[in-house]
Write a protein that binds this DNA or RNA. Structure first.
Lengths: 166, 166
DNA sequence: CACTGGTTTCAATTATTTTTGAAAACAAAA
DNA sequence: TTTTGTTTTCAAAAATAATTGAAACCAGTG
């Protein structure tokens, strides 16, 4: 396998994994393409690199910027925009956590809080109440742990441990 | 909000969250329905409860059993099957981790290993190699941590800590 | 101002995923 | 064996998500 094949395989597999996790496959492929690119790319280079339309490229590049995984760069004298990916993998993980926590964990917690209002007039044995209570406890723990992790940055493991044991 | 509304809301929101994470929405709703049900349900009760077809109910019940989140139960004298969900939330989390790790993390790691073969003839500066190297390191760490977590069960936090600091 | 090189938008199309429902398969009971 | 109650399968239909591409837009430049 040469470098070119390797890149290709990496891009495909990054896309596959993303779509397993409910993230648009093309968005992940654009991300992968930028990750392995030695320099920032233009929208046209992304289009060519992945054989996708201008609209598609644009949408997914914007989404990646929204996730904080890709940034724009302007080259002096040039009119077009260049895009490059954040390559520090810890930062990447961190951004993904921030984004998905906000968009998915937090709304779920909100619903659980609402639903938990019912608990008051719940007989202790009622399975619904127990399940909600358990999931809520777990989610809150996850929420706090992720908050700590987000703030913690590189020395995360010791802070996470502190979070977990209390 | 009464109990019935609460259950409804919980089922909806569990389904929504699942589909955000690339899991079939109906599968998660069946799971939620069984989680909040005081007793085991028949396929027909699931169909009615969620207004879905027999085929759909059957498929998703089987998938849940495959994930280890739901079990069958036979009542003596009765011919039909009853289904009930595992309600210990730690076990639920554990099963989900086991399943997704096997189906998603492991294949990704395999690809990374293959792709990493290229590294040999990579100049140190080559961004592709660095990215692959970093992701691989991270995934392997995640893989090991999850293994430890899966084995660790309830006293997980101290074992995970041990895993993380080394 | 009008032109040029670029980006963004979004209705229509295409691809993918999920669901249906009727037929087939099964297995316990008659 | 046949009947009956049940589960399973899977091709076709429906629902959902992603993609295209052309028009609208935007901002420097002449």
């Amino acid at each position: 396998m040469d470098i070119q094949e390797g890149k290709q395989k990496f891009i495909e597999s990054w896309g596959k994994m993303a779509s397993d996790w409910g993230i648009n496959r093309t968005m992940a492929q654009v991300h992968a393409l930028l990750l392995v690119a030695p320099d920032a790319l233009t929208a046209d280079e992304v289009m060519d690199g992945l054989s996708i339309s201008r609209g598609n490229a644009n949408m997914n590049l914007r989404a990646l910027i929204d996730w904080g995984l890709v940034h724009k760069k302007l080259k002096s004298g040039e009119r077009k925009e260049y895009f490059y990916a954040e390559k520090d993998m810890w930062k990447v993980v961190r951004q993904i956590i921030i984004h998905r926590k906000k968009k998915e964990l937090e709304p779920m917690l909100k619903v659980l809080d609402e639903v938990a209002g019912v608990e008051a007039n719940c007989p202790q044995s009622e399975s619904f109440c127990n399940v909600v209570k358990d999931i809520r406890k777990l989610s809150q723990k996850a929420d706090k742990t992720l908050d700590t992790l987000i703030k913690a940055d590189s020395s995360w493991f010791s802070t996470i441990f502190y979070q977990m044991v209390r």
